[in-house]
């Protein structure tokens, strides 16, 4: 005999898995701190080189900077990645593809706007093809100005993101 869902809600002391009750409960406890500690130390980023800043993005993932120390690992599939780095100007043609990448990434996920072009459009901000203000489309946590920023700036951005996650101030999760 099929049981209505409303029947479950009346059972006292039972937390249902079809609602956010468990995660809501966790968010108010120390368990969320432990979760965030784990999340902030495994920020795998999506290798999505969109412009000349992409070269800095690629070299950040290489052996010289050794970002594996901080759990920052480049991933080649959006399904493995936690961080999307917008590393260039977003054209009207590229925006649907970028949204598709973003939708393929599993939660929790964060965005870093890397370079002047990603923040405002950079030198191309008044082009007929540039989509301005990508922070209205993606929940950008950290902005990294520079043209292009150095690899150290990107590592600094990851540190800022780690601090935000630890302080529960990031936009990737609802607290």
């Amino acid at each position: 005999m099929a049981v209505e869902q409303s029947d479950y809600e009346e059972v006292p002391g039972v937390i249902l898995t079809d609602r956010n009750a468990i995660s809501d409960f966790l968010k108010t406890t120390k368990a969320q701190d432990v979760l965030n500690w784990g999340r902030k130390n495994s920020l795998w980023f999506m290798v999505n080189a969109m412009g000349c800043c992409g070269v800095e993005l690629l070299s950040t993932g290489m052996a010289h900077y050794d970002t594996d120390r901080f759990g920052i690992i480049p991933r080649n599939s959006p399904r493995h990645a936690d961080v999307l780095i917008i590393s260039g100007y977003v054209t009207k043609k590229y925006l649907p593809a970028l949204k598709k990448i973003w939708d393929q990434m599993p939660s929790p996920k964060w965005v870093i706007a890397f370079g002047d072009c990603a923040i405002s459009g950079g030198p191309f901000y008044e082009s007929y093809s540039t989509r301005q203000n990508v922070d209205e489309i993606f929940p950008v946590d950290v902005f990294v100005p520079g043209c292009p920023p150095r690899c150290e700036a990107l590592i600094q951005a990851f540190f800022e993101l780690q601090k935000k996650i630890e302080a529960k101030q990031d936009k990737g999760t609802e607290y």
């Binding site: 405002s120 301005q132 922070d135 902005f143």
Partner: peptide, 19 residues
């Protein structure tokens, strides 16, 4: 036809975070 001289679609006044 964005390279014609009378093209009006440039988004130049709407950028917020100019650096």
């Amino acid at each position: 036809w964005p390279l014609r001289k009378d093209y009006k679609g440039f988004p130049n006044k709407t950028a917020k975070n100019l650096v």
